[in-house]
Design a protein around this nucleic acid. Structure first.
Length: 160
DNA sequence: TGAATGATGTTT
DNA sequence: AACATCATTCAT
């Protein structure tokens, strides 16, 4: 298959059992969030609103539920494949949003629990943006003022 | 440009 | 009933 890749330009952090907006809140482990409690470098992928997948990178030690939600990418390769998967919508909407980027890259729950350093799915270190903006997380109703959204303010590929 | 709303199914 | 969303429609 065609490989798709992009530069991460927007993320959100969900940190530990005391983060009221996080799926690991209260330390309650369920079938759905189980992979969030795995070792760092694990993919935690969940299904939301009956239609979309979202992908996270688990970040902290095993048993401590923390992850970074990948919210937007700058498309770099496999763009024609991304366009096809996204139904021919505008390039600006290819990977700008957690649901959109999973659709563009073909990411589904089949990869939940994968190690994020493999042939199928992975994250590599790239160049750091010169600046990083921070602000409230999107689409949540608790801890709305925690500034745990981070994005590249110089990128046109962020979700807002 | 922005607000409102329907689409969808799983989880609590 | 809520949900870590998105596309469409309708109003400015």
């Amino acid at each position: 298959g065609v490989r798709t890749a992009g530069r991460i330009v927007e993320v959100e952090a969900y940190v530990g059992p005391d983060d009221p907006a996080a799926h690991g809140f209260g330390g309650r482990r369920t079938p759905r969030n189980d992979r969030l409690f795995g070792p760092p470098g694990t993919a935690y992928i969940y299904f939301i609103y009956g239609m979309y997948w979202c992908v996270n990178a688990v970040t902290e030690t095993e048993g401590f539920p923390s992850a970074v939600l990948i919210r937007a990418l700058e498309p770099l390769s496999g763009v024609a494949t991304m366009r096809r998967r996204r139904g021919g919508r505008a390039d600006s909407l290819l990977c700008s949003g957690p649901g959109r980027l999973c659709q563009a890259m073909g990411i589904t729950g089949a990869w939940n629990g994968s190690r994020l350093r493999g042939p199928a799915i992975g994250i590599r270190r790239g160049r750091a943006p010169p600046r990083v903006a921070t602000g409230p997380r999107v689409g949540i109703s608790k801890a709305v003022d925690w500034p745990l959204r981070f994005w590249d303010p110089d990128s046109v590929w962020v979700s807002r």
